[in-house]
Computed example of a mutant assay.
Amino acid sequence: MTVELDVRSLVDAVTRALRERILRGEIVPGTPVTEKSVSDEFAVARPTAKAAVERLVFDGLLRRQANKTARVPVLTLAEVGDVYFSRTLLELGAIEVVAARGEVPDDARLALERFDLAFGRGDVSAVVEADVEFHQALVDAAGSARLSRMYASLMAEFHLCVARVQVLGRLDRSTLAAEHAAVLAAVEAADPALASTELEAHITGARDRILAVYAADS
């Protein structure tokens, strides 16, 4: 069985299709993703399949050891904790700068609209993408290209953390919506201390929920 692709770039199309399958949990952690399997599934040439796999390796959604087949990573409890530790440091630094201006980034508001719509229709991949876009928008608003690049790189592994919880139906829509709104309200009020407090509570709560899922399933 092959999958039809209706986009301009085959490499982009295959990459996105694989990313969505990983985020939905259709390709479970530990599963090998070979160039041949990708080529066969999507009816594309091996170089196209290889390019798509390499992109996902670069993004952190696949891992490949030397001379080994790429696989969907199996994140350990320690790795998940470290992802959240790292993102907390980056986001708290950014939110203080953003909140001091008292201006909510338009991209953050739009991301929350997409988040709510995606949650309503049960689109796991879109929920994860919108959540990442919300937090990325806050970091980007700090105005540091280097900070934005570091954060974007970290978010690849965050995708894997959140996708697993989403697939298991463990995240509460109303709780997340309230936490997101509290962060933006503090930014709009030009209160860096409150914005940092709300954001840290949001990230810590998400971390604890996800670690509980990983611990229960280990």
Rank of each mutant, 00 (worst) to 15 (best):
81 G>C: 15
62 L>P: 01
113 E>H: 03
130 A>H: 07
147 L>Y: 12
118 A>P: 09
120 G>H: 05
78 A>F: 10
107 D>H: 04
151 Y>I: 05
25 G>Y: 14
66 A>T: 11
27 I>L: 15
116 D>R: 10
157 E>D: 06
191 D>V: 00
49 A>K: 08
176 L>S: 07
195 A>C: 05
42 F>E: 08
110 L>N: 12
32 P>R: 15
191 D>N: 06
39 S>N: 12
115 F>G: 00
39 S>D: 12
125 S>A: 15
2 T>R: 11
127 V>I: 11
71 R>M: 10
173 R>K: 09
146 R>Q: 05
155 M>P: 00
192 P>M: 10
133 E>V: 13
140 D>F: 09
1 M>D: 02
99 A>T: 03
64 R>G: 13
100 A>E: 13
191 D>R: 01
153 S>T: 11
128 V>H: 03
74 V>E: 12
75 L>W: 14
30 G>L: 11
55 R>I: 07
131 D>I: 08
195 A>M: 09
68 K>R: 14
186 A>K: 09
121 R>S: 11
50 K>N: 11
36 K>C: 02
122 G>Q: 08
107 D>A: 15
148 S>I: 11
171 L>K: 05
111 A>Y: 08
37 S>K: 07
110 L>E: 14
98 V>W: 01
189 A>T: 05
126 A>V: 03
136 Q>R: 13
109 R>I: 12
47 P>E: 09
8 R>S: 07
13 A>E: 05
41 E>V: 14
6 D>F: 12
27 I>V: 13
138 L>Y: 01
183 V>T: 09
185 A>N: 02
47 P>Q: 10
65 Q>K: 13
150 M>D: 04
65 Q>V: 02
81 G>E: 12
197 T>Q: 12
209 R>N: 06
20 E>Q: 14
57 V>W: 05
184 L>M: 07
22 I>K: 13
143 G>A: 00
59 D>C: 02
